[in-house]
């Protein structure tokens, strides 16, 4: 297991370099000099401040030097400061000489996106395992057909459209749910319970919209996986030795179906992070997606590159955890590794 871990960790180094290369390359796709495009949004920027920017980002040096200088800063987790007027640090808080702390932009946004997606993942897991198993056990009977239809529609629904309609219907017409942000006005003055309730109310729509696609794909996956496993010989053996149908389905078949799910969840992380752009923009939630979208529109390069890099690194770690989880959960692989 240890050998596998070390090998897996070492593999991440070339991956990280590749990711940093791509993030760096993207920034240089922009036509012209980044100080020019930056100043286009800030016409007051003087020639002097442009010079400063150029020096700060080493734009006067050759590309290779620029990249290696940028990489040196990234390794120290220094993603620089935003181009926006508040000039907040991109990643983490900094203290100035007077001891004032300025919080990092990603530091603020990441927990929000993580919270929405983790709650979403939990719901996806519970519901899709339920739907997939019901579907598989009733193959080609009405529950299976009904669930399949729902799953296909869930796949095809444009999330932003559903979000708009739900927002209008539950929020504007009926005023059941708040339609934007994460907190109501006067959140600070509420008691702890009321704060939680308020947060949950705000989270219902965004979580629902963000988990719909995953729900559809994982239900389908569980259904097909169950159907495959149920045909295998060890299931026949389990039935032959007189186990109840419940034990066969949940004790034997489901456990074998769930294993590969670990990998699937790892692979779905970039989709979830990327998908947060539209949902967060619609519901005005200041998570990673909205931060990225706003930064892209304002050509705030340090933020764009910072989020691209951090988002990819998170995915890498997600996959790493998924792989380790898989190796740990599957005795066949675990044995294979220790040998």
């Amino acid at each position: 297991m240890l050998n596998y871990l070390i090998k897996r960790l070492l593999w991440m180094i070339p991956m990280l370099i590749g990711i940093s290369l791509i993030s760096f390359f993207i920034m240089h796709l922009a036509p012209g000099d980044i100080t020019a495009s930056e100043s286009a949004f800030n016409p007051k920027a003087s020639e002097e401040s442009r010079q400063k920017l150029r020096a700060l980002y080493n734009l006067d040096k050759p590309l290779v030097t620029q990249y290696s200088l940028w990489l040196k800063r990234i390794v120290k987790l220094d993603f620089g400061n935003s181009f926006a007027s508040h000039q907040r640090p991109v990643l983490w808080e900094t203290k100035d000489d007077k001891g004032n702390i300025t919080k990092g932009m990603i530091q603020d946004a990441l927990p929000i996106t993580l919270m929405i997606n983790l709650i979403g993942l939990l719901i996806i897991f519970v519901l899709s395992i339920f739907l997939g198993v019901v579907s598989a056990v009733n193959q080609n009977r009405w529950p299976d057909r009904l669930i399949t239809i729902i799953v296909f529609i869930g796949f095809a629904v444009p999330g932003f459209w559903l979000a708009l309609l739900l927002m209008y219907w539950t929020g504007v017409t009926h005023s059941w749910l708040p339609i934007s942000g994460l907190h109501s006005v006067g959140y600070e003055k509420m008691g702890l319970m009321a704060q939680y309730l308020d947060l949950i109310k705000h989270l219902i729509l965004p979580v629902f919209v963000s988990s719909l696609g995953g729900l559809a794909s994982i239900s389908l996956y569980v259904r097909n996986g169950m159907l495959d496993v149920l045909q295998q010989e060890f299931i026949t053996t389990a039935r032959a030795k007189g186990l109840t149908e419940n034990k066969v389905v949940y004790g034997h078949a489901l456990r074998n179906t769930l294993l590969p799910l670990i990998t699937i969840v790892g692979l779905s992380i970039p989709g979830l992070i990327g998908g947060s752009v539209i949902g967060e923009s619609i519901f005005a939630i200041s998570g990673m997606g909205k931060l990225f979208f706003d930064a892209v529109l304002m050509r705030d390069f340090p933020v764009v590159m910072g989020i691209l890099t951090i988002g990819s690194v998170l995915t890498l770690f997600g996959n790493l955890i998924a792989d380790i989880g898989y190796a740990w959960a599957d005795p066949r692989i675990r044995r294979g590794i220790t040998n």
Partner: peptide, 18 residues
């Protein structure tokens, strides 16, 4: 590497810059 970069982020960045 390509799979680990959030695709929609990548698309957004490139489109907006181009």
């Amino acid at each position: 590497i390509m799979l680990s970069i959030p695709t929609f982020f990548l698309i957004l960045a490139v489109i907006a810059f181009l």
